[in-house]
């Protein structure tokens, strides 16, 4: 019975998401797009934190870097092809992922957290203090990439509704990809590393290699979200790579429930809605958010996915 209700519930939500642009006003459609982009980013972090046991405080480096790649590649006066730009952002961020991953994965536990934080902040200050990409002001993307399939179909990314659907499709695809990774032989090894890395090593797995591949995949998925975010606002700035963004995302992972595909979806949506709601009510919204998070941690130690309704089976 609960399984049917669950399917019905998610079906209705998806339907509501599809229909949202028809009754929501501009602000809410934009906000929903923001949530969807964040879901992509938080899901990529969950791949590290929840499924591999790597708690990163520098994941925003990839989010922001990807946006910067787009900003630096975009010509001033003409639009770039969307798919070329996206691919370039993903690949460049993937290279950064290899470099960062190769370094930070030599450490474990608290040292891993600290070194991800350090590398992320290094990138932040690099972008902040050099003139390479606009310094502390960041850069504008004057003409958004052009999504056109030859001549017969075109998306206008400046159009809020068009962008919303792009974000929705992307989020769905990313969740499907992450699901596939988790249920693959590779995902099985990640689960082994997450639960007991020592044993996984002793069983003949070069765990460093597996963690590095996972790290790079996560950085590339983060690149997708950073790219979309840059496209949405038409601007990138150093804050995008700062640890605040990483920490915020980590909070969403934990709030939703790490190690569950739905965790980031629930965590991100909840936190962003709660924050937005409190901001409307009071100036001291952060205080209320803090209380809400403490309450969740108290009553749902495994995150909101621990709420029975979201659970499969029994």
């Amino acid at each position: 019975m609960r399984a049917i209700l669950r399917k019905l519930f998610f079906g209705l939500i998806f339907l509501a998401l599809l229909l949202l642009p028809f009754w929501g006003d501009r602000f809410y459609i934009q906000f929903a797009s923001k949530i969807l982009i964040m879901i992509v980013f938080v899901s990529s972090l969950n791949l590290l934190v929840g499924f591999t046991g790597l708690v990163s405080l520098g994941h925003a480096a990839f989010f922001g870097f990807s946006g910067y790649v787009l900003a630096l590649l975009s010509p001033v006066d003409s639009a770039m092809n969307f798919f070329v730009a996206l691919l370039a952002s993903i690949l460049c961020t993937g290279v950064l992922g290899v470099i960062f991953g190769a370094l930070v994965l030599r450490t474990k536990g608290i040292f891993f957290i600290m070194s991800t934080l350090a590398l992320g902040e290094m990138l932040f200050y690099f972008l902040h203090d050099t003139d390479l990409a606009g310094g502390s002001d960041g850069m504008y993307i004057n003409s958004r990439p052009d999504v056109s399939f030859f001549d017969w179909w075109q998306l206008d990314l400046a159009n809020v509704v068009h962008f919303y659907y792009l974000a929705l499709i992307t989020a769905v695809i990313v969740l499907i990809v992450i699901r596939a990774i988790i249920h693959s032989p590779f995902g099985r090894v990640l689960a082994g590393i997450c639960v007991n890395e020592h044993r996984t090593k002793a069983l003949g797995y070069n765990t460093y290699k597996f963690k590095l591949v996972c790290f790079v995949i996560a950085s590339m998925i983060a690149a997708v979200s950073g790219f979309l975010s840059a496209v949405q606002f038409g601007v990138v700035n150093p804050e995008m790579v700062g640890w605040h963004v990483s920490g915020h995302a980590l909070m969403m992972v934990i709030l939703g429930g790490k190690g569950a595909i739905l965790g980031p979806v629930i965590g991100t949506t909840t936190l962003m809605l709660v924050e937005e709601g409190f901001q409307m009510v009071t100036k001291h919204w952060q205080l209320l958010t803090g209380v809400a998070i403490v309450l969740v941690a108290l009553f749902f130690p495994h995150g909101l996915v621990g709420f029975k309704f979201f659970k499969k089976g029994s």
Partner: peptide, 24 residues
């Protein structure tokens, strides 16, 4: 699942990340 992780270490597929474990 404990044993699966161990057995899989002898089969050359652990880098396969897009196909389901059910394919093996």
């Amino acid at each position: 699942e404990n044993c699966n992780i161990a057995v899989q270490s002898r089969l050359d597929m652990s880098m396969q990340f897009m196909r389901s474990v059910n394919a093996y």
